[in-house]
Structures are given as C-alpha cells and as structure tokens.
Simulated assay, not measured.
Amino acid sequence: MKIGLLNPTVLVRPDPKILAPRLAANGHDVVFYHPKKGRGNPPKGENITVKYYPARFVPKIRYTLPTPGFYRLLRDDIPTLDRFVIGDYLYPVCSIGALLGRRFGVETTVVVSNLVGIEWFYGNRLVDAVSKLYTHSVGRVTFAAADHIVGQGEYVRDGLTRFTSDRKTSVIPTGIDLDHYAPDATTAAEFDRNDAVELVYVGRLDPVKGVHYLLAAVEKLQERGNREYHLTLVGDGTKRAAYERTAEKGGIDGDVTFAGYQDDVRPFLIAADMFVLGSLAEGPPAVIREAQACETPVVSTNVGGVSDLVHGGVVVPPNDPNALADGIEQLAGTNLADCGRVAREFMVENFDVESMMAEYTALIADE
C-alpha cells in the first residue's frame, strides 16, 4: 500500500514523524510531504520518499501557506496514493490536501491536536476571533472532506462532535518512542549553574506559551529565597528579545539561560530537575510526554489535555505566576527522582508508541 503523510508545519509534527518509519517497516511505501524551508529532520529510510513542497510562511510564525507548486505536487501525487494522512487541520495546506483526497477518491485521515478559537486560544482577542471563524469555516470544510478525523486526546472529542459525526471520529493518543526518550538515551547537557534547582522549558518563545509568566515565577522564587533556581529556555520565537529584556529588567538574567533552537532536546530534559510549562493554551503537549519519559517530573499550567498527561508532577492554574512559583516550590520539596520514576512509568503504561501504531494501522492500513 502507498501511504502519503502531509506535514503541514515548519517543524515535523509528532504523529506523521512516528507513523512514517513504522508504516515503512510494515512494508508500505510512504511518501512524506514536508515544506522546503521547514526545520527539523523528516523521517528517512527504506520505503520512505521525502518530497519537499514549496510553501510560504506567515511572517514571524510557523503557519504554512500553500503555493501553486504545492497544489500541483499534490494534484499529481494524490491519485497515486492508496491512503493519505494529514498532520493537522489548522493550515490551508491541510484543507487543500483533504479536498484533493476527496476529489480523487483517496481515503484521507486528518489528525487534530486542538480546535483553535473553540477550546484553544492564543490570548489575543482579534487572533482568537479569526481562529474561531477559521475553524467554523475552513476547518468544517476540511473535516467534511476527510474520511476519518483522529483526535489526539479525549479532551478534543466533544469539540469535534460540533463539526463532524461520531462515525468519522476516533481518539488515538500520540505515543512516544520510549527508547529514544529515556533517562539514559543520550548524554545529559551541562547547565550554567550547578548550585540551583535546574528548570527547563522547551518550546516556542511566544506569548501563548506563557513564557512571561514563567520568567515572573522565577523572579518570585528568587525573591522568596527558599532555594536557588536556574531556568534554561530551549527554543526560539517572536518574543525572544523581549523576554531577554524582561529577565534583565527583573534582575534574573543571571538565573536564566536562552539556549536557542536545538535539534535534539533530550540532553536538556535528561539533565533538568524538572520541566516547566506556563502555557495559556495547549493540546496534549508532546514535550510533556518527552520529559516524563526521560524521568523528568513536570510542573505545568492546567490547559488543554495537560491534566491527563502529568503524573508525578504538579498542575497549576494558568495566567498566575504565583501559582506557577508555588507549584515549582512544591515539586522541588519532594523526592524528584521518585517523581521522575512515577512519570516514566505512566508513559510506559499509557503512551507506548506501538499501541498507537496498532490503532492507526487498523484505521488507515486495514490491517
């Protein structure tokens, strides 16, 4: 069977990245579509063909816009496929893919991590209004064109029923490669400080990720003086320079390291005492699964599917740096090694990638 996987974002999305090598190992021919100027490493190997499509990106953010070249590539390729899997619904390239799948009679599956403007918000009134309109219009068309809709967690199921029938909807939690993300999988990073509780954040440096609340929480922790803390921010984004100024203005620039974008975040997760996330909105964050698989306990705001993921850690209300600081102090006062083991055990029991693959294989490959 020939199966196409469309990655619609600058970075490689988790589900297509996991599916490609395993479908190929099962003897399927996999075509992986990735934007030419995208980052990250598309999966490669025997039975996998990577095709780079031309795309434009909204300035300063990773939203992928289609081009005539993208349309022509899919128009010519999709009729040669037996199945087509689209890594999200949120981008116009996804809608074009779903409509072309319908046009050529190729069974198409769309993966949904969250419904923007419905249950996932950016915190900007105008952007959230546009997002809601997009989901109700373009998103609805995308769901109607697809044969299957896969939600990445139970938290998204109720929202999906507003746009498509239960008959077309499944929930398949995104699994994790437990060997790749493990406490001994690679060499741990060396942090700038060794006299402090090491906190690490991995993700975009953008307002929706609540990085400003995280910096404020570190400032409050240092003011309390109960312990010393050091935060490493792994990633880049539209607000990096602003956050660097915030750290300096708050007097915590010596307690915060901006590590920039990293191809491999495992060394940072393994070395940290805890992973921290202050997001205002999330789906089921892949990085929480990755941190916990590395036996790094988590403090996170209670948004999206977070409460279903965090075990051995602490979940706090969003938009509240005091609550975030309290959660970090609470976890720091426990046996972090024991918390880390609880977190990994939960990943092993509930997010094994092979279980995810079995469900996807039954859905898209008729096996």
Rank of each mutant, 00 (worst) to 15 (best):
D77Q: 13
G123S: 13
N47E: 01
L81P: 01
N47T: 02
V106F: 06
R75E: 02
L65H: 09
L133M: 10
R83K: 10
N114A: 15
P43T: 05
S131I: 08
F57I: 06
V85Y: 03
R75N: 10
V111H: 04
R56T: 06
Y53R: 03
K37Y: 12
L81R: 01
E46H: 11
F104H: 15
F104Y: 15
G87I: 00
R56V: 11
V110I: 11
S95A: 09
G45H: 04
Y53F: 12
L81S: 03
E107A: 15
T108M: 00
E119K: 11
V116F: 12
N41S: 14
V58E: 09
T135C: 09
Y63K: 07
K60V: 11
L74Q: 00
V116R: 11
V110T: 02
T109P: 07
S131H: 15
P66N: 02
L126G: 06
V110H: 04
Y122L: 14
R102D: 00
D77R: 03
C94I: 02
P43M: 07
R72C: 01
I78A: 00
P59Q: 10
E107K: 14
E46M: 11
D88H: 11
N47L: 02
N41Y: 11
R103G: 01
A98Y: 00
C94S: 09
L115F: 07
G69Q: 09
H136S: 10
P54N: 08
T109C: 14
N114C: 08
P66F: 10
L74I: 00
A98D: 02
R102I: 00
D128Q: 10
A129V: 03
V111R: 08
G117Y: 12
E46K: 14
Y91A: 15
N114S: 12
I48Q: 03
V50S: 05
I118R: 06
I96A: 01
V138F: 13
D82Q: 14
T67N: 04
V130F: 15
R125S: 14
L90S: 14
W120Q: 13
Y53H: 11
S137T: 15
E107M: 06
F121V: 05
N41Q: 14
R75P: 01
N114T: 15
R72F: 05
A129G: 15
G38C: 12
F104K: 05
C94A: 10
V106K: 05
N47G: 03
V93R: 00
D82L: 11
P43H: 08
F84K: 01
L81M: 15
R56K: 14
P43D: 05
T67I: 02
N124K: 10
P42D: 08
P66Q: 04
V111A: 09
Y52N: 08
A98Q: 01
A55L: 03
I78P: 00
G45P: 09
T67D: 04
R56I: 11
F121K: 05
S131M: 14
L73E: 06
P54H: 09
F70T: 01
I48Y: 06
G123V: 12
W120M: 07
D82P: 09
I86H: 08
R102P: 00
V85Q: 09
G105P: 02
L133Y: 13
F70D: 01
V58N: 07
T108I: 00
G97T: 00
T135K: 12
P59K: 10
P59H: 06
L81W: 12
N41E: 15
G38F: 15
G45A: 08
V106W: 03
D128N: 12
